[in-house]
Design a protein around this nucleic acid. Structure first.
Lengths: 193, 193, 193, 193
DNA sequence: TATGAATGAGGGTTCATTCAT
DNA sequence: TATGAATGAACCCTCATTCAT
């Protein structure tokens, strides 16, 4: 079952939901197409399961990262670091998470979007806290949260683990980028690690 | 033919390449499925034509926008404004321009990606000019250009023409966002218009 | 029109009736597919016209060859020579004449077969005359006429004008073959030419 | 699978490769068209399989017939008998074996033709052995083998099991025909059976 | 007489899904 | 839980034929 999920992610990434053939997926796992139906009831189910799972892990990861932090600046720094770390480590999942929403059943679509919105609200909350605490003064927290997430997520469209920049360099560059855009001096970002 | 292109864009946006049925497309245009083949030789051709066309218009639009401008700050400002204006006005095209690349034949894929890269290089060149001219000092022009384009392009995933913010407000917010991230004061951006 | 017939023969030979596309045929002639319908009413018509024409010319050719001859031996010799000469010179027509009968409409099929049978009867008549005249003694004129025509027609499945044997050598060999099979000495065949 | 082969032969005989519809074929077998693809990968495969199979059985049949025979006269007699017996018993296979070659893929075509040539060479070898052994003196073994095979194969274009002549009468007539054409007296052919 | 766009039936092939074993 | 043959709907694409120009 876990094998099916993993193979499903790979195929969804490479081919997309419509182009992915259950026969090929079964082949990847080493079973016959018919046998897949002992694990899923429909092709659609597989997509939803995979996407739900991705969202869930994303939430858990972020929660763990921010646990106990109260300073907005530090929260922002950690959000950026976590987002890039998680996204670059899971290029495939992120890609599917953005591309395959369209193939979801309306009901399933709503559920996944709700999760994604929840995640976006975490950054927005941080921005608003920072505004309140005087850490920065961002004019439009909603737009800024969208722009920031887009900028950070964009990384994984071109990130190459064996490329010019290491993951931590990438994180530094984006912390600088975002902090600047928030009107913060980069030195403010120097945290405990 | 133009009708086919327009209907194709709509269907690609709503359903994606694989899910789009040529019969439905023909229906949209008011002809029989077989008649489509007087205009295209394959389904794949339609996708490629549409994507090529989008890229071409994007290039032309940007060239017109930047024509005669020499000041990097002004160029950057115009790039941002143009990008948001163009992308929010063409949500559908932008969406398929990102999503349907995967459905391209390898040969066609390479051609489209080459065009996209050319576009990205325009911003990178602006950044590098600005570095040279002392307008700003951006540490990593490549990464910064990617992050910026991602942030700006992200707009059209949530932009709603009848939403809270007008297009020009959106542009202002993003100019501010990007200028800050470049370490520029927003007032520097005040151009002739 | 004559160009269409000639191109039709070529295409029928190479591809067969079902596989032959009217578009390609039109291309060969240098017109559009639609324009063909100024000359034929249906694809089937073309086939019938071509086959009728072939049969007609075959009959005419044989009649001219046998005109005025009364000696069965000489008639046989001339029949063989004519058949091989005509068939090797018209490989394509002969081939279609055998292969494409199946694609004819039942009504058309009957007409063509009637012509072919008439042709076969010419040889049978010669054989029977020879029996009567004591030129040879063939046990079963019908079977022998079939076997003989098959043997002769077979030539054009492998005949190559630039091959080892010239047309007249081929004719000599087959005259010998058939005369022997009729129990005739080959020297009997030496005619005026 | 065997049912598909048999139905395929029938349909190829009646309609030809291009005109044969897989849907009809499936109907003959009592399955859906799609189910055919559990047995073949392409329509072309079916044709090739059938033709290969025919050639293989033909070779096997002949080998069995000639096994242990060393006398060229007897070999010739048996070749004729076998060829007519096999061909009249398999009118349909013989027909498509000649007609549908054209519908083969070039690669497949070469393979089948190679088999056919091998078969023709068997007769040619017999003729050459007979020449060497002084059993007969045939001027051009190649041409004679072609003419002979054509004459014999022609039988099945008109042979009717309920017709005037029995199979064995037919064989006798053709043995006489061919033996004469080889310059042999028919009495030489009287073998053990 | 020629064009070329349109038709419409249908053909080969694919594939999610089912089900008896 | 696994198989693999069967289903059946549908999809892309083809092509003879029509017809307004």
């Amino acid at each position: 079952m876990e094998a099916i999920r993993r193979a499903g992610i790979k195929r969804l990434y490479k081919q997309g939901f419509e182009a992915m053939k259950l026969r090929d997926l079964a082949d990847d796992v080493g079973i016959q197409a018919g046998s897949l139906y002992n694990y899923i009831r429909q092709k659609q189910d597989l997509l939803f399961m995979i996407l739900s799972d991705i969202m869930e892990r994303l939430h858990e990861g972020l929660s763990a990262e921010l646990e106990g932090i109260e300073d907005p600046v530090e929260e922002l720094r950690r959000f950026i670091a976590f987002h890039i770390r998680w996204h670059t480590a899971r290029k495939e999942e992120v890609f599917i998470g953005n591309m395959e929403l369209r193939s979801l059943t309306p009901a399933n679509y709503r559920k996944i979007i709700a999760e994604r919105t929840k995640y976006e609200h975490r950054l927005r909350s941080i921005i608003e806290e920072g505004n309140k605490a005087g850490a920065w003064s961002v004019r439009d927290p909603q737009v800024t949260s969208y722009a920031t997430i887009a900028a950070l997520t964009g990384v994984c469209t071109w990130y190459n683990p064996r490329g010019r920049l290491s993951q931590s360099e990438l994180i530094d560059l984006h912390i600088e980028y975002v902090f600047h855009s928030f009107g913060l001096d980069i030195s403010d970002a120097s945290g405990p690690d």
